[in-house]
Every structure is written in structure tokens, then in C-alpha cells.
């Protein structure tokens, strides 16, 4: 149970960063932390103590492996997060080009 709690705290750390930081890059990094917390949670759900890696080899039966599906899911979600992070970094660079700053309190041409 403790590991899940720690995982949840990591998620909250990411959320805290997104809410309180003013720097675009720090917001992107906080999103990364949040994403890792979610991924860690998925991996933990598939964990079985004492089990081995889920690769089919000679003389290995599926019973003694950890659950491979969360690992596949995490791989997919890492790819998605890579895409989103690249997108966000590109947006941040273009915003810097326009406003000459990364500070979100100075980037507010839109109101409401």
C-alpha cells in the first residue's frame, strides 16, 4: 500500500508544479513528473513479488512471470508522452519567439 501512496504523492508533486510554477519549461517538466507517476502506478499494478521478466523462453511458464500487459501499456503511454512533450516544447519555443519570455504571468494576451 505504501508504494501506491508514494506514487500518488509523486502525482501530486507533478500537479503542484503545474499549478504553482510560472515558467513554461517547469510546467512541461511537472507534466512529465505527473506522467511518470501514472506510468509507475501502472507498472506497480502488474508487479508480483518474486516473479521474473515476462519473456517467453525455453523452460519458462507464464505463471512465474509478472503481468506483461501493464508494461506494454506503459511503453505506449511513454510514446504518447514523448509526443506531447515534443509538442509542448515546440509551442514553448514559438511562444518564446513571440513574447521573449517563458514567464506565464507575462504571456496573457487572451483574457477570460
Amino acid at each position: 500500500m505504501t508504494v501506491y501512496l508514494l506514487c500518488f504523492i509523486l502525482l501530486l508533486v507533478g500537479l503542484y508544479g503545474i499549478i504553482t510554477k510560472r515558467d513554461l519549461i517547469k510546467i512541461i517538466l511537472s507534466l512529465g513528473i505527473m506522467g511518470y507517476a501514472a506510468n509507475l502506478m501502472l507498472i506497480l499494478f502488474g508487479y508480483k513479488s518474486g516473479a521474473i521478466y515476462p519473456i517467453l523462453e525455453k523452460g519458462v511458464t507464464p505463471e512465474i512471470m509478472v503481468d506483461p500487459l501493464p508494461q506494454a501499456l506503459v511503453l505506449t503511454s511513454i510514446v504518447i508522452e514523448l509526443g506531447i512533450t515534443a509538442m509542448l516544447v515546440a509551442l514553448a519555443v514559438r511562444l518564446f519567439e513571440k513574447y521573449k519570455t517563458f514567464d506565464i504571468t507575462k504571456i496573457r494576451r487572451l483574457s477570460g
Binding site: A86, V89, A90, V93, R94, E97
Partner: peptide, 8 residues
């Protein structure tokens, strides 16, 4: 592409 931005 990200590094191209930097050049421009």
C-alpha cells in the same frame, strides 16, 4: 525541427 527554430 526544434533546433531549427533556434537558428531562425
Amino acid at each position: 525541427a526544434l533546433s531549427i527554430f533556434h537558428i531562425d
